[in-house]
């Protein structure tokens, strides 16, 4: 099963303050462990929301609002993509993530093709294939 583990922004990350030196060590060690166990597929951190933007939709109307955004604790700070046998295994790994003294980490299962296998009709599948094809070649 593939999971996206979403870490949240902090006041420090939103201020663009780089993490203290020792965090590079502890976090580095944690990431190394994930790699050693063969579960890590990808991971990245995000710049402060001041370097991002949001697109708000209201019917046809689109409004672009530049960052920063206020609700720090709900903002995404970074993500990991991992492959584990179960949600529990993923949880067990990320209980071990260092530097998490407050707030929360969100774990979400990534949708993969087999998740649709049973509920999709042939017509729906064909529609998805068509859409995939178009997004791929346009």
């Amino acid at each position: 099963m593939r999971f996206m583990v979403i870490t949240k922004a902090t006041a420090a990350s939103e201020a663009g303050t780089p993490p203290p030196t020792e965090v590079f060590d502890t976090m580095g060690k944690f990431i190394q462990e994930l790699m050693d166990a063969g579960v890590l597929l990808a991971a990245d951190g995000l710049h402060p929301s001041s370097q991002g933007a949001r697109i708000y939709s209201d019917g046809e109307k689109k409004t672009v609002v530049d960052g920063p955004f206020a609700e720090t604790k709900e903002l995404i700070g970074g993500f990991f993509l991992v492959e584990t046998k179960s949600l529990e295994e993923c949880v067990e790994w990320f209980k071990r993530m260092p530097g998490q003294d407050e707030g929360n980490i969100e774990i979400r299962r990534v949708i993969q093709a087999e998740d649709f296998a049973e509920t999709m009709t042939d017509a729906q599948r064909a529609a998805v294939e068509q859409r995939d094809q178009e997004t791929r070649y346009n």
Partner: peptide, 10 residues
């Protein structure tokens, strides 16, 4: 038990 299973796996 599920947690133990996960720990075991790791």
């Amino acid at each position: 038990h599920r947690a133990i299973e996960a720990v075991w796996r790791i």
